[in-house]
Every structure is written in C-alpha cells, then in structure tokens.
Amino acid sequence: MNIVCDKQLLTEAVANVSRAVSSKNTLAALEGVLLKAKGNQLSLTGYDLELAISTTIEAKVVEEGDIVLSARLFLDMIRRMPCETISITSDEKMLTVVKGSMTEYTILGIPASEYPELPAVSQTTGITLNQAALKNMIGQTLFAIAVSDTKPVHTGSLFDIQNGELHVVSVDGYRLAMRCEKIAMDGEFSFIVPGKSLSEVSKLLKEEDREIEINVSKRHIIFDVGGYNVVSRLLEGEFLDYKSAIPSGSQTVVKINTREMISSIERASLLISDNIKSPLRLNFQDGLIKMSCSTAIGRAYDEIRCEQTGDDVEIGFNSRYMLDALKASECDQVQLIINGPLSPIKIVPTQGDKFVFLVLPVRLKSE
C-alpha cells in the first residue's frame, strides 16, 4: 500500500473511528484501525465486535492495499506530525512507514486478513430523523442508562415507535428518563440500543436541522451520520414497562427555576461524597423548598422559593440523581410532581410533554 492524504482529514477520521476500537482484546487486530486504499479513497474502520465505526476520505492512492495499524499509536503519530500531508507505505512484510515532512515512523502492521468481518445487515426498516432532535433525545436520556450488568437490557435505551411518536427511554432501577418526538412513521416498532453505541453516535451528530438515516434489522442498527457509518448490535430482552412505571395523579405540584434548584442542591449536598453517603432532605412547605442533609462530618441547610399547589411534603433523594435529571431538562423552569414521600418524583416541562424524568425517593429516618 502506498498513499498520500491530508493530515487534518486523516486525523479526524482516525480519532472518530478509534472510538469503536477495543483497548484490550485477545485479538490484536481489534486494537487497531483497518485501512483500505482503493481508487482515490482511503476507508478506515474501528470495531470491537459490538460496535463498528467506519468512514472514507479522499487520498492519492499510488498503490492499492490494506493493513491494520495500532489505533492509539497511529493517532498519536499523525497528530504530532508538523505537516499538512502524510504518506503511508507498507510492504508485503507489513512494515509500515508513516511520514510527514521530516518526521518518519516505521511500525509493524497486522494483515487485514486477521481483521474480523463486520456483520452483514439485511432486511432493515428505515427511519429518518432530524439530526439535532436525535442528538437532544440521546443527551436527555443517556444519564439514566444502567451501568451494571444485573439486567443487561437496561444498559441500553429503548426506542419505541407508536402512533407517529418516537419515545426514547432509559432506566437504571433508581430513575427513569423518557424523551418524545413526533416522527413520520406509522405502525408500532421497538428496539434497544446499547448506551455505549448511543454515546458514540451522539458525538458524531451535529446540532443541524438535517435528516439522518437509521436502518434497523432484527439484531443490528446502522446510523448514517455525516460521512460515518455506525453499526451496532441491539440488546435483546424484556425492557421495563415504562408506561405503567410513570405514576399518574399529583398531590403536590411545584414549579421551580431549574438553575436556582441546581445551585441550591449543589450547596446543600456539599457534605455528601462517594465515601460519605446521605440522602438530601427536601421539605416543600408554603412556597419554600427547604433542603438539608446530615452526615458524619456535619450538617447543611439551604432554601429557595417556588410556586407550590397541593399538600406540603417532605421527601428524601440521592442528590446526584436529582442533579442529573434537572441538568438534562435543559429548561429554565420545570415542574416537580409528587405523590407523597414514598412515590417517585416526576420532573416534567412547564408546557408540553417532550420529556419525563422519574427519580425514586430515599426513605428518610426521623430526625
């Protein structure tokens, strides 16, 4: 293989496809990026057997060929090159020379034949989505995806299409996040995308009012995002019945300024850490939210004003879960809907129903 290409294009492509590269794998080829030079193009692929990211850039191909190069090392090399163009040549023994200006590296590559084949995806259902809307939907639900594998199906987000609406739902046993958007698609259809895949897709999505194509098969999903092709396996299993998990009714409705609430929680939970755990106590009373917490190292108290209708209530929370939900709302004001001290708190917009966040309470000990 013998190619010459633009440094900036190559660096960006390698950085993006490397996100799907496995850092530690028994198969050495999977720790690398697959390069294929053909015609006047260079295609690059990163793959960890669950997620694949690939793209194509323009290149001057003197000699066609393919090779696998260590993703981390290759990216570090080309990033540091003091030039605008980079040449890559490799021989039949996989000895590869990466050169830019007066800087030159010689490394040993891996034959492309050792790189596993990407899954063949057929019989897909196509979905067209607005790029900015999808980025927002992922961003507002990613925080509630389960991290542990106790229920693997909850380490992803449910995409549920019903009656021309797409619901993206994440749940981790302590909280739930749901985001809705109207979609030009009839019928009922659902699938579960791993959290890691959504996180990487989100990084490639731009805040643009442009459509992107998603193709879903029985076991895989393909996102076609801005010149990148992202293929991910889907998770299988029974997802939580999110509709029945969201409580109805409202004994107490509180309208708050989101930024004020976030600042107050951060002040009141200053004594809480990973080592010193304690619930944050919220007392909703007469248009005030009184926040307090008590730990082995001391006590904290803060209060803010709110618009309250309904009963007074005192309820306890994990402060981090509450902060995550409030920050994900991306609204100046939100409503907190509470059905007593042992029911999940529901966070919704003041107008419309684009999102619903649930945070489970912590049972409080009497002071």
Rank of each mutant, 00 (worst) to 15 (best):
K60A: 15
T103Y: 13
L44G: 04
A112T: 03
V61P: 04
L108H: 08
A52R: 03
L51S: 09
V61Y: 04
D76G: 09
T106P: 04
L44D: 04
E92I: 11
I88A: 08
S43M: 00
T85N: 12
T96A: 07
L51F: 06
R79F: 02
R79G: 01
E104G: 03
E64K: 09
L49Y: 04
M94I: 00
I86K: 04
T106W: 06
Y105F: 15
D48L: 10
I53V: 03
T85Y: 03
M77Q: 05
R79V: 01
M94R: 10
P82D: 09
I107R: 11
E64H: 04
V98L: 01
I107G: 13
M102F: 05
V98R: 07
K93T: 13
D48R: 02
S54C: 12
F74Y: 11
I88C: 03
S101L: 02
M77T: 01
T106I: 11
T85G: 02
E84A: 08
S101A: 10
I88T: 03
S70R: 07
S70N: 15
I88G: 05
S90E: 13
M81K: 06
V61C: 08
D66I: 02
I67L: 13
K99E: 14
M81Y: 04
D48S: 02
V98I: 12
S90C: 14
I88W: 07
I67R: 08
L69Q: 06
E50Y: 15
I57R: 14
E63V: 12
V97I: 11
E63R: 14
